[in-house]
Design a protein around this nucleic acid. Sequence first.
RNA 1: UGGGGGAUCGUCUAAUGGCAGGACAGCAGCCUUUGGAGCUGCGUAUCGAGGUUCAAAUCCUUGUCCCCCAGCCA
Length: 553
Amino acid sequence: MSNPEPRDFIRQAVAQDIASNRFGGKVVTRFPPEPNGYLHIGHAKAICTDFGIAQEFGGHCNLRFDDTNPTKEEQEYVDAIQHDIKWLGFDWGDRLYFASDYFEQLYAWAVELIQNGRAYVDDLSAEEIREYRGTLTEPGRESPYRNRSVEENLDLFARMRAGEFPDGSRTLRAKIDMSAGNLNMRDPVMYRIRHATHHRTGDEWCIYPMYDWAHGQSDSIEGVTHSLCSLEYEDHRPLYDWYLDQLEVFHPQQIEFARLNITNTVMSKRKLLQLVNENIVAGWDDPRMPTLSGLRRRGYTPTSIREFIDRVGVTKNQNLVEVAQLEACIREELNRTAPRVMGVLRPLKLVIENYPGDKVEMLDAVNNPEDSSAGSRQVPFSRELWIEQTDFMENPSKKYFRLSPGAEVRLRWAYVIKCVAVVKDAQGQVVEIHCTYDESTRNANPTDRKIKGTIHWVSAAHGVPAEMRLYENLFPMPKPDEAEDWKQNINPNSLQVVQGYVEPSLADAETGARYQFERSGYFVVDPDSTPVRRVFNRTVTLRDTWGKIEKKD
RNA sequence: UGGGGGAUCGUCUAAUGGCAGGACAGCAGCCUUUGGAGCUGCGUAUCGAGGUUCAAAUCCUUGUCCCCCAGCCA
């Protein structure tokens, strides 16, 4: 059951707890999202850790929505979150919970704390509470309402629940220590009044528990043994423990780890929401978003994301992982699994002068050199082809070994051709390339000379028009968060739409199907794709050695 | 001059007193009908200074730097 050598400090702690029979050897974790936005790759780290550890140690992981703030939460998010977790590859079975299901129990426990003199109704305003809290370096002052009688507190709290008081007029606070160095212990608010409709409990409640009051108790109710969360809750652990100790209920262990950060993107829910609301991107599932729905639409696989999370590890260190690390994971998987096809992004007409105009040959093309079981397909070849604009250069550098005047190049799976003429328009733009082909080189190399370059192509008569959406990082700089105005730094080329052609085998490609467009990148069929308008999203480019050579010059 | 946490190649991460290793990125080469993939090689990385020890990334002392906390958000 337990790993012989746990991979990280959390797994080590869990293994130790099992060894010492703490919690009766059981392992129960939970993933506690607030339904106020879509899940992103940072959440994937938490999901993989919470569900992964439960799985590895033969335990369970609960999915519990932390829905204690009706003003920010929506059913849409509840549904999207469940969909994304399943897609990532995890299953909570019947262990779907909501903090809002515990509101009655939480209320009863709050009454218990009042009765024990550990909580009180405070009439201070939000602003006054802030003033009384003190500062980081100065202790706070006790509220004048702090020493009300138990009876008065009970009465007031019941009337808070009954809806007798307006929003913000009163709170229930834990009576702890206004001089604590840890601000969380300076009489934290347990309940606030919010006459708001909750997406699950409707208008049943007008007081709502705060995170700290809800979270640990929810963990306890569910029998969670290991409550894993991010580093910023380290300061909350003493409070987490305090509530549980006061209540003398089952006491889970909270363990904190560092959240995931990735270069060239933003990860805070607030900023992602802004990108969506201000139409900077096309929605939560815009392929440029670091959301799971965005990555899915971009063509990332669940396994590649899990692999990525595995590789970056779990520690308490501040981290900023290069996005290249994520890209490496999807490239590695797709290299193994994606069928190769030919697709031209920016078409340039090529005419083979000595090839008969009425002739069409079907050429054999290997589907995946990394997977012999993938077989091969037939690709039509004819006199007029589309090639990539970037595969022709009128004045090539020495290291360029694709097409240029007088130069020879191989057409993938077809013939070696030689450029004999260049046709230009009135503006001097190259609009057509004329070549001759060497009939003896059909899928075979000439013996008398070495052909260095191979380019891809699509038969003009057979090619299928396709829209290609070429994505790059949303932000050009590694740390957009540190810029003065982060939104001013969106990469203008983060989405480029081009109209190209793909080989006819892709005519019926299904939504979600992934391909390698040879020499270009990995693409996935977008949901926008129809038989009339085929749309491919570029998931990631191939590693581009030529691009590096070019840059150096 | 409050409380909490963290410092290991460019990045992420291993080591739990015993050869500082891996992945990504980068560089050089080989190979190649994808300038893909693959293969080979390339590293003054333990925050500083003292100390303990045969031996320190690890233990002790001390200093420095970074992150988080003053929502009736989570």
